[in-house]
Amino acid sequence: MSTILLIEQVLNGLQFGVMLFLMAAGLTLIFGVMGLINLAHGSLYMVGAFAAAAVAGVTGSFVLALAAALAAAALAGAVIEIAVIRRLYAAPHLDQVLATFALILIFSEGTRWLFGSFPLYLDIPDALSGPVTLPGGIEYPRYRLALIAIGIAVALGLWWLTARTRLGIRIRAGENDREMIAALGVDISRLYTLVFALGAALAGLAGALVGAIQSVQVGMGEPVLILAFVVIVIGGIGSIKGAFVGALLVGLTDTLGGLFLPALFRLFMAPDAATQTGAALASMAIYILMGLVLVWRPAGLFGTRAA
């Protein structure tokens, strides 16, 4: 196994990880601040991708497409928070799961009604297309490098927002004791709408960024949502830092597991059987990781309460 392949796979793992982080950050914020399990987070990812594809199709501009994705997902997030989610904060988790699952179905059918069942076209901007040669002779797609950079920039921005701004103080206070900050005169329902819209915008951004290299289609958000839940459970529910570390761990485990496990089995098995066993085990790898982390730290890596 060559070093070049290994480095390329580590980059792939990082890129996958930071995109998962964009999803998981919103999910963990919403759970941390409002105690809400939002299954419809994957739908917001899809909304972002469709908005980007639609705007890129009309204007041809990727920057406008990204702006549209952020705006559409944030707007959709704010609307469902005000119309539906707001009624669920006091409700048990099962009610939240049922209601947000219903939202998934509504969003999926609504999107199909608007855009049809065929995948949409969203392409990488010309400036970022094609490979770039890294030191050491590694060829790597420029766009994926940009994704890593954007993901890290967003992570830094979120850290700054929560640690250094007034809004961040309120968000952290809301995580700890929502009655108390309401009593101190913070408009808690506006704070909730804001946090929800912020989380939605991050999901929409991820959808648009990933949509350019994958296919933009109905139901694209749900597989990512499952991984995002794994990420926040590993990282500790409610922790942005945990979401970041968890996302990178999951991204790297998934990518490197797919590479090494089949190779490992090939050492002592027939190639056909090794490929299949290795592939099967690789797809389980992140869940095994989650299990191990929970055995070691039941609240997740950076969690304060038991998950």
Binding site: L5, E8, N12, Q214, S283
Partner: peptide, 21 residues
Amino acid sequence: AEIYTDLGQTDYASEIAQIRA
């Protein structure tokens, strides 16, 4: 080489890296 991917998989960066190598 012969690779089986997941049904419904959306990211092939890892497979493409293996093709390259």
